[in-house]
Design a protein around this nucleic acid. Structure first.
Lengths: 219, 219
DNA sequence: AAAATTATTTAGATTTGTCTAAAAATATTT
DNA sequence: AAATATTTTTAGACAAATCTAAATAATTTT
């Protein structure tokens, strides 16, 4: 089954959107892919005829098992290439996404498996997301939102929720990076802010908005 | 200047074809790209309007200096990726071409330069072809056709003229690979065959057809 | 429950890169 | 140099992926 770049992008977007909602709407997809709802409808019909989607007009869409398998292959490639860029080519973890969006469409299965081996079969990419293996098996995400962390748990920052310049500016100011270790001290009901201790440094306050954008894994 | 994959393939094909002939005909291009002459004419008009070609209807085409610059970027990427596949991922030199045809269209300039550095700034790819540097400067090809080698010159096989299974079968039988060292003993006018000595082994006869398909560099 | 709003689909147009068939230009043969 | 053959271009059509505008279905508000 050979897919075009465009078809692959739809499959991938549906995969990620359905993680959250189970089923994906036309408008959601249009916003995600930066296209118009009418274009989405056309593509949904095409991919359905290829048996990659379960789609009822007006009712939203989800991946068939065949579609899910293809999605996992794309995710695998994306995350392996990101690992390559960071680990081998010294890219920053915050500048690999766009390049990986291109590399993920290279089709050679042999290339992907050799790359995986070359990297030492990593199980997580530089953002902390799990990498599916060559059979499409992916372990559960180990990371959790900072907002959901219980007080007095030690954790390590492993991913951010967006790449917006505003967020990156704030993180730079507070000197929080991927790998920064911290411990939640207490949470405040009033504004959902939290006080955390940065390892080796003092205590700081994190707003609800910022905490929501930070993902950590417990250590 | 952003080009589509298709446009890049035309630029690259013209670059390679004009190495030999100086100017390239519509039919030559059509055969090379596996498309029809009518399609070629359309694309020539488009690329000419982008100032990448010097094209006179019915008179053939060649690259403008801007077109040549882009061609060298594509060749650079192709040959660096081939080097990566062979040196780092343990691909055989005879199985990298198709994958590199895909990888050469990845656009990130930063990626290419980092890859170059990661590979140790190689000057030749696994087939012995020179790799342009990041300014588009490429050293002259060091390799020469085995037919053109003077008797009693030592040389090393560094490239083959085609990937046909028939050729590969013959090379396997004669145990000639990339890197095999040899010395031409004598040449026969009658059938243009030559007798060569394989380093560490005995003398063998090479037909005109086979010699024509082998490229070597003197050592 | 009817009206208003929002979401989705349909219909028809556009762009890119390709094609076939026919016409025009160039090259070759006699 | 005329006739023939080859090469190249033009003209018109098609599939893929997108768009806008209009129509229809679903949801929300009053």
């Amino acid at each position: 089954m050979h897919l075009t770049v465009s078809e692959e992008n739809y499959i991938k977007a549906i995969f990620h959107l359905q993680e959250a909602d189970g089923t994906v709407s036309t408008n959601q997809l249009a916003a995600n892919i930066h296209t118009k709802p009418a274009s989405v409808t056309d593509m949904l019909k095409k991919l359905t005829s290829k048996r990659l989607l379960l789609y009822k007009p007006y009712q939203g869409v989800r991946l068939s098992s065949e579609g899910r398998k293809l999605a996992l292959e794309i995710v695998r490639k994306h995350r392996l290439w990101e690992s390559f860029l960071v680990d081998k080519l010294q890219f920053g973890w915050d500048e690999v996404h766009e390049v990986a969006e291109e590399l993920e469409h290279i089709s050679s299965k042999k290339l992907v498996d050799k790359l995986d081996q070359f990297l030492g079969n990593p199980r997580f990419d530089p953002h902390g997301d799990p990498i599916p293996d060559s059979n499409g098996v992916m372990v559960a995400l180990r990371q959790v939102n900072l907002l959901d962390l219980k007080p007095h748990t030690k954790a390590e920052v492993c991913s951010v929720g967006s790449q917006s310049p505003e967020l990156l500016e704030l993180l730079k100011h507070k000197q929080i990076l991927i790998g920064t270790r911290l411990e939640v001290q207490c949470k405040f009901e009033f504004d959902h802010s939290l006080e955390i201790q940065l390892e080796g440094r003092g205590n700081i306050t994190i707003s609800q908005q910022l905490a929501q954008a930070l993902f950590v894994k417990t250590i």
